[in-house]
Amino acid sequence: MSTIKQALAAAEHTCRERGVRFTPVRRRVLAILLERPQPLTAYQILDHLRTAQPRAQPPTVYRALDFLLHQGLVHRIESTNSYLACNHGHDHTGERAAHWPQFLLCDECGDAREVPLAAELQHLLAQLAQGHGFHIGKRPLELHGLCRQCRSAA
Rank of each mutant, 00 (worst) to 15 (best):
M1A: 12
S2C: 08
S2M: 03
S2I: 00
K5P: 00
K5D: 14
A9C: 01
E12A: 15
C15P: 02
E17G: 02
G19P: 07
G19S: 07
V20F: 02
P24A: 06
P24Q: 05
V25A: 06
R26E: 07
R27N: 12
R27D: 11
L30W: 05
A31Q: 15
E35K: 13
P37D: 13
P37N: 09
P39V: 09
L40V: 10
A42G: 15
Y43H: 15
I45R: 05
L46Y: 03
L46M: 09
L46W: 06
H48L: 14
L49W: 03
A52F: 00
P54S: 10
R55W: 02
A56C: 09
Q57C: 00
R63V: 03
A64S: 15
D66R: 14
F67S: 05
L69M: 08
L69I: 09
L73V: 07
H75V: 01
H75R: 03
R76E: 15
I77V: 15
I77G: 03
S79I: 12
S82L: 10
Y83M: 06
Y83F: 15
A85Q: 11
H88R: 13
G89P: 04
D91M: 07
H92E: 08
T93Y: 00
G94C: 12
E95H: 12
E95R: 10
E95A: 14
A98G: 15
L104K: 04
D107T: 09
D107F: 00
E108V: 12
R113E: 15
E114K: 04
L117I: 01
E120D: 11
L124V: 09
L125W: 01
L125G: 00
A126E: 14
Q130Y: 02
G131H: 05
H132A: 15
H135M: 05
I136H: 11
I136Q: 11
R139F: 08
P140V: 11
L141S: 13
E142Y: 13
L143P: 03
L146N: 08
L146H: 14
C147L: 04
C147P: 05
R148L: 08
